[in-house]
Design a protein around this nucleic acid. Structure first.
Length: 98
DNA sequence: CACATGACCTAAC
DNA sequence: TGTTAGGCCATGT
């Protein structure tokens, strides 16, 4: 499905793990940093996960916009348009925002 | 190697 | 209910 290989990108193993988990998120669905951290085996490394996500090449390689906070709010977005675009994208995919 | 940063989370005031 | 403080982990300087 993924046209690109994360392994081909440069970054630490931790990042690659996070990015892979991101791509594994089904469309129209959202995940929290906590769940993501848990998935990679470090439920306490939520901050490191957030760092990895923000350090990713972002659009259009990795759907970082599918990652939200536990509060239902969005975190941030280092892409074009900013968080606003992120919200729009999620809503377009059928995700409800607080 | 030590310090500082961050798109976080939880608890406490 | 809104803000502050502490804890946690990886990355970059």
């Amino acid at each position: 499905m993924q046209k690109i290989n994360i392994e081909k990108l440069k970054g630490t193993k931790f990042q690659k793990k996070v990015w892979k988990a991101l791509m594994q998120i089904p469309k129209g669905k959202t995940t929290t940093y906590k769940e993501l951290a848990k998935k990679i085996g470090k439920p306490k490394a939520v901050r490191a996960v957030a760092n990895a996500v923000r350090a990713n090449p972002c659009a259009p390689y990795i759907p970082c916009h599918r990652v939200v906070r536990s509060d239902g709010k969005l975190g941030g977005y280092s892409g074009k348009g900013g968080v606003k675009k992120k919200i729009k994208l999620l809503q377009k995919e059928g995700v409800k925002i607080n």
